[in-house]
Design a protein around this nucleic acid. Structure first.
Lengths: 337, 337
DNA sequence: CCTCGATGTTGAAACGTTTTAACGACTGAG
DNA sequence: CTCAGTCGTTAAAACGTTTCAACATCGAGG
């Protein structure tokens, strides 16, 4: 419990100066093999563990990246995180994951802590647009799966308007004219964008704007999808939509469960499109049609932008990927009855 | 880009000493309200961000816990992490998640880094039993979802042998006599335990040990489940099991997909039991019978044990929870044909 | 008027590294 | 034998905090 063995203990034990020990740790090639062995032996023997705080204080660098994720329980984000970590690891950095759990306060606490820790860089999928809070604080920040409102930092995103358009166009093409969109809260940019895409699809097809019923949810989780399902079925039959576009797959899965539970069939009574194409979408009760995003590439690219941030002549970049529709059984062509 | 505004800049700007600034930061009550305001204003104005490295170096404490998780993409672990974070947060600590991705090397790198960072404590679901590597290095370590082989540290686990027994007993009771177990690699303690439980169930029912076919997988992920499904169907009909017990839900979901794809029915051609009862199990193509573990409580308890580790008269504790079988459609009673 | 305690503030010494410039000891060339 | 150049090592100065003992200041009690 008093394991405070420092670099100077090692030095003394090996009969060298602390500078030499430091060299062994950081530039092993510069020290004579014999000495190096002696020092390594001493380190081993004393169970020395370098104090990263001291190192960082002096050296300024920190060897870790952090990704503040919106919802660690959503497989979409863990896939993005995988991409981030791969890229980080190639650059010799470790990745710390922080879960804001869609809570603005928690997000701010993590950001504050990460700034204080002087991590090399921060990736974040922010809770809302209030990005002003973490303005220029010294640590580079890259937005993931969001677009920087101002051009004040790098961002990597997917065209959500297009995604919404793809989804709803597909529904229209398979014969639906009363469509629900399930998602929320509207403070989330992506929900707004996907909704806008949905509206555009209607317009393109010459359908009136009120062909789209918007069901707002409190979050993007499975339970909310189930609840939305109940609300949906509660609508008067004349106005009840025959198809639903969900702002993400978790909602879609919840909706699916709710339908089955209420004895309704997907896609016959209600066609469903999800968003993200998480791994579980294909394994769902009714395999889910979904809008796929290049998840890992999203993360990987974000990390690369972040690492480029330190270059001298850096200009903020905004990368935008294209989503892609994956059609499965949940929107199979309707039986003509 | 030269935002190196330190505590002494603030002090100068506010016309006080750096000790006072430090007091404002750490013991606001001890400094006169007027001075405090002045200092806070200076902090705001200069955009000062406390340097956590320096603080930690001097103060010794670190305000963060870390959880080294086996597979961040497995919802089971993110649920455990939620429990950990809740408990950590109540104690005023932040949580960093590290993903070892079942890679021993990566795990070791993270452990090393965390030790160097002098985090307050480390929670870990280790890749394998080689726990000796991270022996007493000063930072307290608690094992999550694993039992400490020696009593050398705290651990929180679930009775996996019992879990396996529950699952397979259920299969036997629903009329199966040729059962497969899908899981691996065997270096994972839990896979071994669950298999042992399965064997015990057979013994209890008076079935021969070879009534259980063990299909080893390389990991516990969906893709491996799919592959196991193909292997399973490839077996000669006379020896092919009529039920499968999977070491986790991801495998079970993969197996399910594979069955559907090969035109076989679950549960009629093959009954399936999963393990963990992740949220997606209930939403699967065929809702999955699964062994439920108290995930969040697991995490919460682990964090509490970790925090208790610093108490003077600490004795290592080993908490073990009971799993519970949740029956769904994937093991519905077989149609008598 | 002196002493005492309370209240706020401060100077300076840590904390454990990295880094820089300088140093001594060799080596081989001239 | 000298000199320039390597090579390996080192003393000492940072890095930006926290903390501790000491120091003013002030009002109250004797």
């Amino acid at each position: 419990m008093k394991p405070s063995v420092g670099i100077r203990d090692v030095a003394q034990h090996a009969g060298v100066s602390n500078a030499t020990v430091s060299n062994v740790l950081n530039r092993p090639d510069v020290v004579a093999p014999a000495t190096r062995q002696r020092v390594l032996a001493a380190i081993e023997e004393l169970g020395f563990v370098r104090n990263e705080s001291a190192r960082q204080l002096r050296a300024g660098r920190s060897r870790v990246l952090a990704y503040v994720v919106l919802d660690a329980a959503n497989p979409f984000f863990t896939d993005v995180a995988r991409g981030v970590e791969d890229a980080a690891r190639e650059a010799g950095l470790a990745l710390f994951l922080c879960n804001s759990a869609s809570d603005g306060g928690r997000e701010r606490e993590y950001l504050e802590l990460l700034h204080e820790q002087r991590v090399e860089g921060i990736l974040i999928t922010p809770v809302d647009a209030e990005s002003a809070r973490f303005a220029e604080r010294g640590t580079p920040v890259v937005l993931v799966d969001r677009e920087a409102a101002d051009g004040s930092r790098c961002s990597v995103a997917v065209d959500d308007v297009l995604g919404g358009e793809l989804a709803v166009t597909h529904l229209i093409e398979t014969g639906h004219t009363r469509i629900a969109m399930v998602g929320g809260p509207l403070s989330i940019q992506q929900v707004r964008d996907r909704r806008e895409g949905a509206a555009r699809a209607l317009a393109n097809a010459g359908l009136p704007a009120d062909a789209l019923t918007f069901l707002e949810t409190r979050s993007l989780q499975v339970a909310e999808g189930r609840e939305a399902g109940e609300r949906l079925v509660g609508l008067p039959a004349s106005r009840r939509p025959t198809a639903a576009f969900c702002a993400n797959d978790l909602l879609a899965l919840g909706l699916l469960q709710s339908m089955t539970q209420q004895g309704l069939s997907v896609p016959d009574d209600l066609a469903v499109v999800g968003y993200d194409d998480i791994e579980f979408a294909a394994a769902a009760a009714v395999p889910l049609t979904s809008v796929r995003q290049p998840r890992e590439q999203l993360g990987r690219t974000a990390a690369q932008l972040l690492l480029a941030e330190n270059e001298p002549d850096h200009e903020h970049r905004h990368v935008k990927f294209q989503p892609e529709l994956v059609v499965r059984a949940s929107t199979a062509v309707r039986r003509r009855s």
